[in-house]
């Protein structure tokens, strides 16, 4: 039994080794036809990956300057921006940021039961640290009506709510699955968002775009209602000490990393605890195996 156990263990290790080494550039596809989406080397990928704090800060800047004009981030509160594990902005600057946020918090009804002021505007107040980061639209219908029928989705969970479906012949499919499990690949959503932001191209000949639509290589069906949000040269001016220079790819990568954090803020804590638990389980498993061998050595089995 023990010889077999060692053989199985060795085989498993070998398999894991092979799968880890396998190049991660197989054909992936989103939607019906094969769309190639590259796997990006995220700082938070894999077992040891953690968020890159300066990158999250840059990403917030891109979100604030580019995305926030249409997209909300309602499952996050301003306080999250100052909490450990995230961009970790100073509390005071987040307070100021909240106070100046364009999208206010509904404050009615007041003492007189009114929900609008004299001008007929809804009663609102400035957001506090504990308030959600709202987008500009009061509801989905308002958002659709302002965007030609298209709904700009809330971005709080966007990198979890998107993925890259695998379209490969079955044996390759199984190999990709096994490799993803071994490698702890969870960044399909981030890869998709990055590919989308950098995927605006001129429509190829023969493709008739509907009115107001743009051509995007990563979007299923290729016709997307969102116009290219980040231009070729980048959309925001990073500060000198931000750790990177602005460009389309840098902006896209930064904001995607920020959105990945927004969707999964416990990632750093999760992986840190994960390694402790794995280590504990490994030691215990080995000890239990040795104990079991001692016990069973008393009988022929």
């Amino acid at each position: 039994m023990s010889k077999q156990a060692i053989a199985i263990f060795a085989a498993l290790l070998g398999l894991i080794g092979c799968l880890t080494v396998l190049k991660s550039s197989d054909a992936y596809a989103a939607g019906g036809e094969a769309i190639h989406i590259e796997r990006h080397p995220w700082s938070f990928a894999g077992f040891f990956g953690q968020y890159d704090k300066p990158q999250l800060r840059r990403g917030w800047q891109v979100y604030q300057d580019v995305c926030a004009s249409c997209h909300g981030l309602k499952r996050l509160s301003f306080r999250n921006l100052a909490e450990p594990g995230g961009p970790e902005f100073p509390v005071e600057s987040v307070k100021a940021l909240a106070k100046n946020w364009d999208n206010k918090i509904f404050a009615g009804p007041n003492e007189d039961g009114e929900i609008v002021d004299e001008d007929g505007e809804l009663l609102v107040r400035d957001p506090l640290l504990s308030d959600p980061i709202l987008g500009p639209y009061a509801n989905d219908n308002a958002a659709r009506s302002a965007n030609n029928g298209a709904l700009p989705p809330d971005l709080s969970l966007i990198t979890k709510a998107r993925g890259i479906p695998t379209h490969a012949i079955w044996y390759k499919h199984v190999a990709i699955m096994a490799r993803d499990i071994v490698n702890g690949y969870q960044e399909g959503g981030a890869d998709y968002v990055y590919a989308l932001l950098t995927g605006y191209k001129d429509a190829p000949e023969g493709v008739q775009l509907s009115e107001g639509m743009s051509y995007n290589v990563a979007f299923p069906g290729h016709q997307i209602a969102m116009a290219q949000p980040i231009p070729e040269g980048g959309a925001v001016e990073y500060q000198k000490n931000a750790g990177a220079k602005t460009s389309l790819h840098q902006n896209a990568e930064d904001v995607t990393a920020f959105l990945a954090w927004a969707a999964d803020p416990s990632l750093d804590a999760r992986k840190n605890l994960g390694w402790l638990v794995m280590l504990y389980l490994l030691i215990t498993t080995v000890l239990l195996y040795l104990g079991k061998r001692v016990i069973w050595s008393r009988v022929k089995h």
Partner: peptide
């Protein structure tokens, strides 16, 4: 534990 800590969403669906 591998799935809980490193692949919590692998067995679910993005949708």
């Amino acid at each position: 534990a591998w799935f809980v800590f490193f692949l919590p969403d692998y067995l679910g669906h993005p949708d």
